Amino acid sequence: MRILGALLIIWLIIGGFAAWQRGYFGGMPGSCAQAGTVALTIVAGPLNYTGANPQISCEVPQPSK
């Protein structure tokens, strides 16, 4: 169980490093799509270095006028 936990931490650290290399931590995300892309990049971990470029698109409902 410890090995699995350690592998998960290493996986997420690699994903965080990939997100940092892409410049995702330069400021606050401007939309839910940017926040989702950052999160997905971190979760994808080492897959980022095999050519994966995860991106999310989402649309937030606008308040009624």
Rank of each mutant, 00 (worst) to 15 (best):
I13D: 12
C32G: 12
G26Q: 13
F17Y: 06
C32N: 03
W11A: 06
G15S: 06
A39N: 04
I56P: 11
A39I: 12
G30L: 05
F17I: 15
I9Y: 00
L12I: 06
Y24G: 06
R22K: 15
S64T: 07
L12K: 01
A19D: 03
I13L: 15
I56L: 15
I10E: 00
G51N: 02
L8R: 01
M28G: 09
E59W: 14
N48V: 06
G26L: 04
T50W: 09
P63W: 06
E59C: 10
L7H: 00
G5H: 12
W11I: 03
L7N: 02
T37P: 13
C32H: 02
G23D: 09
I13S: 14
A19N: 06
L4F: 09
Y49G: 08
S57Y: 13
I42G: 06
F17N: 02
G15V: 05
I10N: 00
P29F: 10
I14F: 03
Q55P: 03
G26I: 05
I10W: 01
E59F: 11
Q34Y: 05
W20G: 08
G23H: 05
G26P: 00
P29R: 07
L8V: 03
P54K: 08
P29I: 11
R2L: 09
L47G: 00
P54R: 11
G16V: 05
W20L: 15
P63R: 11
S64C: 01
A18R: 04
G27T: 04
L40H: 11
W11M: 03
G30T: 10
A6M: 13
T41P: 06
P54F: 06
S64I: 14
A39F: 08
L4R: 14
C32P: 01
V38A: 12
A6P: 00
T37H: 13
P29D: 07
A44W: 00
N48P: 09
P29C: 09
Q55M: 13
A6F: 07
I10V: 10
M1T: 01
F25C: 02
W11H: 15
Q62S: 15
M1Q: 05
A44S: 13
C58F: 09
C32R: 03
A52W: 09
A19M: 07
W20S: 15
Q34M: 14
A6G: 09
Q55W: 12
G36V: 11
A52R: 04
P29K: 08
F17S: 10
I42W: 04
G5T: 02
Y49P: 00
R22F: 12
P46E: 07
G51Y: 02
P46R: 10
A39P: 01
L47K: 00
L12E: 06
G5V: 02
N53H: 12
G45F: 03
Q21A: 01
T41A: 01
C32A: 12
A33R: 11
F25Y: 13
A52N: 04
F25S: 02
A6N: 11
L40N: 12
